[in-house]
């Protein structure tokens, strides 16, 4: 029982980061009809900024640890928004709805940005000090408070995004554009501006995931790439462009990874995910909640 609770806790913790990451990817796909292979670079940028700022803030400037994390978090989101705006303005807005073109552009960006990070940051992994020390015990399973907070913050952000997409006017235009871009434009929705907002929200979600992940794992310049393959599997399972699908898919993949990784081994778990995708494609090619044309 303790073991299962522990594994379930792991699932929620990995899953919450997967959900944030996949949500951004699926949102960008929904609005712009592009697959952003450079999505991991937003994640990485945020994680790198958090670790750099925290190490500087705590060791050199002597700022309290929680406050320097707060600064680092906000700074990371701002920088990623700027990066997102630049790559959208000079790149992605020229390849809207062009699957092959945007794929190539995002791969180019992936190489360019990852190369730049490596130059600026170096290849050595760095860990940041614990923001909130201590442990809690829940049904016999032990969990650091830090990881608990990570889950809570991720859940809040996810709920916030869900409300944004389903309850606000911006969300309505995002969904309208995702549904049918031309019909949305006929209703007077400024497509290009909505696409920009969708892209920036997606980038910010990846940045949140990166900034949160930096607190529990050593940061390297390729940290975001590991998430990319799994995020792709998640959005295929959930259905491209579906917010709820990304949430369910993220938790499902985390469940397989956590339990499969314990009872078998991590690579068996990854293979199991792939088999799941294959089976799903045979049964329901548009994903659990997707409604793409076949």
């Amino acid at each position: 029982m303790e073991l299962q609770v522990q594994l379930l806790m792991n699932t929620l913790q990995i899953g919450s980061v997967y959900v944030l990451f996949a949500l951004g990817l699926t949102l960008i796909f929904g609005v712009m009809k592009i697959v952003n292979f450079a999505h991991g670079t937003f994640f990485t940028a945020a994680a790198l900024i958090v670790s750099s700022v925290m190490i500087w803030g705590v060791d050199t400037a002597g700022i309290p640890i929680w406050f320097s994390y707060l600064i680092a978090f906000v700074l990371a989101l701002l920088v990623v928004c700027v990066i997102g705006f630049v790559v959208y303005f000079f790149g992605f807005q020229h390849v809207l709805k062009d699957l092959n073109g945007s794929f190539i552009l995002s791969i180019g960006l992936l190489l360019l940005l990852n190369g730049t990070y490596l130059l600026l940051y170096g290849g050595v992994p760095r860990s940041i000090p614990a923001v909130v020390p201590g442990n809690v015990t829940f049904l016999g399973a032990s969990l650091t408070i830090q990881r608990l907070l990570l889950m809570i913050v991720a859940a809040i952000i996810t709920i916030g995004l869900y409300l944004l997409v389903h309850r606000t006017k911006l969300g309505l235009s995002l969904r309208a554009v995702a549904e049918d871009q031309e019909a949305a434009m006929l209703q007077g929705i400024p497509y290009r501006r909505v696409a920009l907002y969708g892209f920036l929200i997606g980038a910010t979600l990846a940045a949140c995931a990166g900034a949160l992940m930096a607190t529990v794992t050593p940061v390297t310049t390729v940290i975001g790439d590991d998430f990319l393959v799994k995020a792709f599997i998640i959005i295929i399972i959930g259905g491209l462009g579906s917010v709820l699908g990304a949430i369910l898919g993220g938790l499902l993949i985390a469940l397989i990874e956590s339990f499969g990784g314990y009872y078998f081994d991590p690579s068996t778990a990854t293979l199991a995910m792939f088999v799941l995708v294959i089976v799903l494609l045979i049964v329901r090619p548009q994903g659990i909640l997707g409604h793409a044309e076949r």
């Binding site: 552009l105 791969i107 180019g108 960006l109 360019l112 940005l113 190369g115 490596l118």
Partner: peptide
């Protein structure tokens, strides 16, 4: 710089 160069050339 190799990857940066490839990335720049592709973009």
């Amino acid at each position: 710089y190799e990857n940066i160069f490839y990335g720049a050339i592709i973009i």
